[in-house]
Design a protein around this nucleic acid. Structure first.
Length: 565
RNA sequence: GCGUUCGUAGCUCAGCUGGAUAGAGCACUCGCCUUCUAAGCGAGCGGUCUCAGGUUCGAAUCCUGACGGACGUACCA
């Protein structure tokens, strides 16, 4: 349910009655419990505009609010409007959620086509921690938009084109002849060996350069080798996606090479738009207020990543008919994207009303605040990081004991991977974040384990009860009231997370929800003998909805729950 | 140099479409298990929201500047 919109509408009706037209009504959560559930702060601004007393207007407004949703509205301070939600109305609404398959959240009736461009590994290298954030933030956004009913296109813009591939293909051909094919299993090493050959052997280097030209001009033999290399690299990625539980398959791949044939067309389109200038022999587009241009074609005729990005935008605009594109890419590329977006719009490669967004994220740091590296300063392979997370998760659970070996393996995997994802998604994506194993696998505070624990506790109750739950929710206390308010706010939160492309608004919400549930759990016994049936049912329903909300929220983030912990 | 971005409790972070006394977790001090999972809950301690101006009835939030950090800065992606 769009809870806040409903309240906004109620206020709007009251404003209509008193002939005042506010610009935009947005109630916010009450800043203090004694102020009720929601507050409206817009009166002061309106009063100033009208030149009248805010308290007078507020009183007039309050007198004209009539809704069974609201039990009490009052004017406070200089002209705040404090809104209290009616308990029996609220109880009915959460009962509806209990009965609903989908939390009474309706799919968007006019779905937009939203393309999420994420993960984007480089085929010449194994996936490392640098790919983690793009992959899980992008995947969670795609899940979110899908849940809200948008038409989602997931795309993996893999780096499979460019000069380095000549070297790799030449080397691949060499080792294939030596029947030493296993080397490809370790991509990092393969790259290093190829580079070594390239640096040490002039003949090999020349061959590598030839191969670049051959691939790009469509030489059959070279393309076959290239394809073989890409397939193997992609399989490495698939293993990681599988382990991480990411919804990306080979079908989602739209590689750089995919746009190769479009590149000359982009140049001529840019020429036609009149934006293209030649500077030092390179074809460039100059941006307003910037001295450094975007180069789309090098002086030697080669194309650059900006050209590929423009081709991708053009393809997405013309063929895929997108309404919104989210580029989930490192914040360091923000200038690149703002430039490319400007060119795309200015040149007409992309319609004006398509929303092009750089979903930027910060760098992963270690505990001392330096970029996350291995002990000897190398990049950390993503597979290694995930495996370590699972091992550490196992240690954490083992302290608690009494699980069968088989169960513990499964638990460790779910919890370890979930913890990696949660700790990343729970941070405002734009800032750098400190990767800390201990915090990640802690049960305290806004962590995945606290959430898992809350969920498991509820499952334990529901399993114990194990019969039909019926009746209506009747809210008995402040904490039950608060819990119901939270549960009803789920859709608002999801919409906000989708609008701002901020998964961490979901984790914050889930943490608040779980915290309130824990308090409810402490003070409201459910299955004790002396609890009357109607209260028992009411509390079971509240618990059940809480569990389902936690599960759905985590599912959107790409995190699985466990029933026992 | 120029540009982008960040600066909130000892630490890790919320809050930022301007609203009432700035919130969590960790750490530290205390209290609560014969009763649904104590990996929990409650209480306390801890702040010049980097600094200086400005706009406003009202600023952590918006604007300007300074200081400090990160990143970027034409033929790599």
């Amino acid at each position: 349910m769009k809870f806040k919109s409903l309240i906004n509408d109620t206020l709007q009706e009251a404003f209509n009655k008193i002939n005042i037209a506010p610009e935009l009504i947005t109630v916010s959560d009450a800043s203090k419990p004694e102020f009720g559930d929601f507050q409206y702060n817009g009166i002061m601004a309106i009063a100033k505009k009208l030149g009248s007393n805010p308290r007078d207007i507020a009183s007039l407004l309050v007198d004209n609010i009539h809704s069974d949703m609201i039990s009490k509205v009052e004017v406070a301070g200089p002209g705040f409007v404090n809104i209290h939600i009616d308990n029996s109305w609220l109880g009915n609404q959460v009962t509806n959620i209990f009965k609903s398959e989908n939390f009474t959240i309706e799919k968007n009736q006019n779905p937009k086509t939203v393309l999420i461009d994420y993960s984007g590994p480089n085929m010449a290298k194994e996936m490392h921690v640098g790919h983690l954030r793009s992959t899980i933030i992008g995947d969670s956004l795609a899940n979110l938009f899908e849940f809200l009913g948008e038409n989602v296109i997931r795309q993996n813009h893999i780096g499979d084109w460019g000069t380095q591939f000549g070297m790799l293909i030449a080397y691949l051909e060499e080792v294939q002849q030596n029947s030493n094919f296993d080397e490809l299993k370790n991509l990092e090493n393969f790259y290093k060996l190829a580079k070594k050959r390239f640096d040490e052997d002039v003949a090999f280097a020349n061959k590598a350069r030839e191969y670049v030209v051959k691939i790009q001009s469509g030489d059959k033999h070279c393309l076959e080798l290239w394809q073989k290399f890409i397939n193997i690299s992609l399989s490495h990625c698939d293993e990681v996606y599988e382990k991480l539980g990411i919804n990306l398959t080979k079908d989602n791949v739209r590689a750089e090479s995919f746009y190769n044939d479009l590149l000359p067309i982009i140049i001529s389109k840019l020429e036609a738009s009149g934006l293209l200038k030649i500077s030092d022999g390179a074809k460039c587009v100059f941006l307003p207020n910037s001295e450094t241009p975007i180069i789309v074609q090098k002086s030697d005729g080669g194309y650059l990543y900006a050209t590929t990005d423009l081709a991708a935008i053009n393809y997405r605009n013309d063929i895929l008919k997108v309404d919104r594109v989210c580029y989930v890419v490192d914040a360091r590329q923000s200038e690149h994207f703002s430039g490319v977006f400007w060119v795309a719009k200015e040149s007409g490669l992309c319609k004006q009303d398509v929303l092009l967004e750089h979903i930027a994220f910060g760098t992963m740091m270690d505990k001392s605040g330096k970029p996350f590296k291995t002990r000897d300063g190398g990049t950390v392979k993503l597979v290694d990081l995930l495996d370590e997370a699972i091992v550490r998760a196992k240690d954490t659970i083992n302290d608690r004991a009494n699980f069968a070996d088989e169960e513990i393996e499964k638990l460790a995997k779910t919890i370890g991977i979930g913890a990696v994802k949660y700790s990343d998604l729970s941070i405002n994506r734009e800032s750098n974040y400190i990767f800390d194993w201990d915090k990640m696998l802690s049960f305290d505070g806004n962590t995945s384990l606290y959430m898992q624990y809350a969920y498991a506790r509820i499952q334990s109750i529901l399993n114990k009860f194990d019969s039909e739950i019926f009746g209506n929710i009747e809210l008995q206390s402040d904490i039950e009231h608060k819990l119901a308010i939270m549960l009803l706010g789920f859709e608002d939160i999801l919409n906000r997370a989708a609008n701002d492309a901020t998964p961490h608004t979901i984790t914050s919400y889930l943490y608040d929800l779980a915290t309130i549930f824990m308090r409810f759990y402490e003070q409201s016994p459910i299955l004790k003998d002396d609890i009357p049936t109607d209260i028992k049912m009411s509390r079971l329903m509240l618990s059940s909805i809480t569990a389902r909300t936690i599960k759905k929220g985590l599912e959107i983030l790409g995190i699985e729950v466990v029933d026992r912990l």
